[in-house]
Amino acid sequence: MTEFERVLVNSFNAYIEEKGIRAISYRLKQHRFTSQFLDVLVDSLDPDLYLGIECKSISVDKGANALYFSQHFTVDKKGIHQIERISDYLNRSGRRGFLAVELRLGTGREREAYMVPWEDLEKLYRTKNLKLTVEEIRSFPEIKRDGKDYMINPREWGRKNRWEKDSLNEAAENLGESND
């Protein structure tokens, strides 16, 4: 488990405890020859907290100017890209998905982290825009820091995922209405 993942899990659990919410954040143990679906999972009956989060970290101080889909994500033995595998898992599980990106800015400087809604990442991947620049990453909601921990506020990170939007559209169609 990376330091970023550990701090994110601990920050989620502190938020959950502070708010008195019935939920838990955890990281599944990764085994050498099996792939894990996501880095951080949050289980809750609250749909704002039923989450799947993939974590990536890039070193801006060492010259990284983008998160590349070919370099920072994996392709499995069957040739299936990590974004496709995670998208399938999120769609099947009904979890809200996010890519948490940590920008390491160098010695003596605070790290920054941002929450990219998975549907936005998937859209970029499907349109063959195969990178997310540091500038683009910074356009997404920041996970603000509180000392060494992160301040968790899932409602700031975008309310609806594709499943929720599709469900609302189906419900509206069943009533003979449009949800546009």
Rank of each mutant, 00 (worst) to 15 (best):
M1S: 08
M1V: 10
T2V: 05
V9N: 01
Y15S: 02
E17L: 09
I21A: 14
I21E: 11
I24A: 12
S25F: 01
Y26T: 11
L28I: 10
K29M: 06
R32K: 08
S35T: 14
F37T: 15
F37G: 14
F37K: 15
L38E: 07
L41Q: 06
V42C: 08
V42G: 01
V42D: 02
S44M: 11
S44V: 15
S44P: 12
L45F: 08
P47E: 12
Y50S: 14
G52K: 03
G52E: 05
I53K: 01
K56G: 03
S57M: 12
I58N: 03
G63F: 03
S70H: 11
S70W: 07
Q71F: 06
H72G: 14
V75I: 15
V75A: 07
G79D: 02
I83S: 09
E84R: 11
E84K: 12
S87W: 02
Y89R: 06
R96D: 03
F98T: 11
A100K: 10
V101R: 07
V101C: 05
V101S: 01
T107W: 01
T107E: 12
G108S: 06
R109K: 15
E110I: 01
A113W: 01
L121H: 06
K123E: 07
R126G: 02
T127Q: 13
T127D: 10
L130R: 15
L132A: 05
T133R: 10
I137C: 04
R138H: 08
F140N: 00
P141N: 05
I143H: 00
I143L: 11
K144R: 13
D146V: 15
G147A: 10
K148H: 05
Y150A: 00
I152S: 03
N153E: 09
W157K: 05
R159D: 01
K160P: 00
K160M: 13
R162T: 08
R162N: 10
L168M: 14
N169S: 09
E173V: 13
L175Q: 04
L175E: 04
E177K: 15
E177W: 12
S178N: 12
D180K: 11
